[in-house]
Every structure is written in structure tokens, then in C-alpha cells.
Amino acid sequence: MSIAKDPAVWAAALGTLAIWSFLYRDNPIYRLAEHVLVALATGWSVPYYYYSYIHPVIKDEMIGQGRWAYVIPIVLGLLLYTRFIPSVSWLARYPMSAYIGYGAGYYLAFNAKPFLGQVTASFVNFGAGNVVNQLLFFICILSALVYFFFTVSKEHPAMGYASQFGKVVILIALGAAFGNTVLFRYNLFLGRLQYVLQEWLGLIQ
């Protein structure tokens, strides 16, 4: 066991313990750590964002390289803030319409190919791989789609059973996603625990 001598490691480890203290109950030490964390993050982010976005775009590219077309998106961006002034709040619709237009255009241009790839991958290929597995996969997809098929009555037995099976398929998928999410949260905790035991206390190699 060799406890760290670096003050930065001590600060990180004690901060971690302070945050963990919330697991028992809310307390002043947790709140102090929370406020210090938020203050540090804000203090760090403001100059970082300034020097990453505003400084290079306005000073270097717009003024330095004469890219005056950048004025258009800057003005559009500023117009978003007119929402806070009721008399001219309608001006905020222009940047929003440009943003939505860009989003729709982007989606149509770049999402079609990956999506079609997903569709063709769901076709059963009898000439390759495990056919039983592929058929099961195909049936699961169809059933899950039937569950969301609201224009046809589910009173017909075929539609009803398919819809019920589709619900089970969706629940299995959601269960897998939930299980992985729980494990991810635990891994975040493990990362801090490993830091405390290894970097701070020197209990593990």
C-alpha cells in the first residue's frame, strides 16, 4: 500500500468520496463537491468554447481570411435570441426554418443509404448462413412491425397473435438495452473505484 503524494490525486479521490456520500443521504459535503464541480466545469468551458469556436471563426477565418459569408449564420444564430423579446419574437422562426430545412436535407441525403442497408440485411438469404436463425429474425421483425400497425384491426386471430408476439420481441429488445445500461452505469462506478484503490491508496497494481 503506497498512498499517493500528488495533491491532484488527493483532490480527485476526496471529490469522488464526497460525491459517493450522497448514496447514504444528501449532506453538506456532497453539496460542496457538487458546487465545486459545476463551478470548475463552467469556468473551464467558457474560455475553452471561446477559443475553440468564437476566436478561430470570427478572428482567424472571418476577419483574418475575409470569409464574410460567415456573417449570415452568425446573424441567424443571434436571431434565435429574439424569442426573449415578444415584439420581435417572430424573427426566431427564420433560423429555426433554416435549421429544420438543413436537418431534413441532411437526413434525405445521408440516411437513405444506411437505412436501405438495414432493410436489405433483414431479407432472408437461403443461400448463406443459418437459415433457421435468419427466419426467426425475419419473423421477429414482421411481428414487431405488426404491433405498430394500427390501421388494421387486431381482432383477427392472425393479427392478434402476431401483435402479441411482436410485443414480446420488443420487450426482449428493451430488456437487453436496459441490462446493458445498468452494466454501463456500474462500469462508470468501477472506473472511479479503481481510481481510488489504485491511484490514491495504491492497494492494487
Binding site: G117, Q118, A121, A173, A177, N180, T181, L183, N187
Partner: peptide, 17 residues
Amino acid sequence: TLTMSIPENKPYVESGQ
């Protein structure tokens, strides 16, 4: 990717994308 993103990426791996 993260553990919780494995299920949503899996279809893209299966499709070969």
C-alpha cells in the same frame, strides 16, 4: 462504444455496415 450502446449498434454489425 459504451456497453449500453451495444444493442443499437448490433444491427449495423450484422448487416455488415
